[in-house]
Design a protein around this nucleic acid. Structure first.
Lengths: 194, 194
DNA sequence: GTCTCTAGTCAACGCCCGTAGAATGAAATA
DNA sequence: TATTTCATTCTACGGGCGTTGACTAGAGAC
């Protein structure tokens, strides 16, 4: 009644598409790529499976649209600052991880074709970290930092390891700080200083 | 001759079963639970799909047998020794792909029924590590160590991150040593000594 | 008011899957 | 040798999947 013109055609389409995308994100996250069926996504979004096909073309394309929406944090500054930024962003994601990037993660581990698509996103993240590390092996260090972050996220949110899933994020960060600092900013035994 | 009966029925069966199990392990690792088909496993083992069913009863059961065969490294001793053992076992697994344990992980994420079975295996590994760490938060520290190991393995073998996949294992271990030591054996800022 | 466009539905196709059960033929047993 | 056992194959079924294309109905344009 208060909204006499709530449903223009364009608006309706936009909403439906968003609803499908949202349902798909949740489905890919909780079931992985293979176990997610277009019918289930459609049903969760309250539409017909044919409509999903009509809007997104294929299951692959729907999946691509979902991971395309996953955000990437910004990292920079001095090595120590970068380490703290990494820890802070990890702390954030320990508390509330955006469903989209978990969908990315899970499907990546589940769907071979998805892994390569996702790794470009990860590579971009690693490049940001590497830029903040003034060492000859900055690339490798950044990759290890990224791998650690990934392992923590997978354990807590996907595997739901008892200890990590119930842990206080602050405790986890406290224990990880020496790790991240040693990787981003600490001299190694070769005597190089970073 | 020493082997006048090379193909007794029992022997033949044992061999065929082993071949199927081996093919299944590879398949579950590289494709995950859902994408692995009994037909493909059978074909890789050079037998008929019906035989796989006949020997293992169901796909679920075949999968159970595969993860049952996954080995768990032994960890113990002083904190520093434990850290070195963890690093050594990780070094091993960086060089030669631990097909079984990655199959475990990958399938765990696709197969809900398998998740609990798999996480008990991981929990056992973490418990071993925790036992070697004399700290109040040993459980959490062990979980983080395990998560880091997992992240490195996933990045190198599943995602095949450029940096990590091509890195010299010795370099990776060198960079990770301070991490593992700080988690297993180093005092934290609360002043506790481990 | 009529025509056009398009959001959304419906029924169906072809494919591949896990699985069942009968058939086969060689080894074990008597 | 005759009989039983069992490793192995073959054929088939029922089901769920991604995808298709014809269809309906209501909004927008003229």
């Amino acid at each position: 009644m208060t909204a006499p013109r709530p449903t223009s055609r364009a608006e309706q389409r936009r909403r439906t598409e968003a609803r499908i995308l949202d349902a798909a994100t949740r489905a890919f996250f909780s079931a992985g790529y293979d176990r997610t069926t277009i019918r289930a996504v459609a049903s969760a979004a309250g539409v017909d499976a044919g409509l999903v096909m009509h809007y997104f073309g294929s299951k692959q394309e729907l999946y691509r649209r979902v991971i395309e929406a996953a955000p990437a944090p910004e990292i920079g500054g001095t090595p120590t600052e970068a380490a703290e930024q990494i820890l802070a962003s990890l702390a954030d994601r320990l508390v509330s991880e955006p469903v989209a990037s978990l969908a990315l993660l899970r499907s990546m581990l589940t769907n071979p074709e998805a892994a390569s698509a996702a790794s470009t996103g990860i590579a971009r993240y690693e490049a940001q970290i590497a830029q903040a590390i003034p060492a000859a092996d900055a690339g490798l260090r950044a990759a290890i930092i990224s791998a650690i972050t990934l392992g923590i996220m997978v354990s807590r949110h996907l595997i739901k390891s008892d200890e990590l899933a119930s842990a206080d994020p602050a405790q986890v960060i406290r224990l990880l700080r020496p790790c991240m600092l040693s990787l981003a900013a600490r001299a190694d035994h070769t005597g190089r200083l970073n």
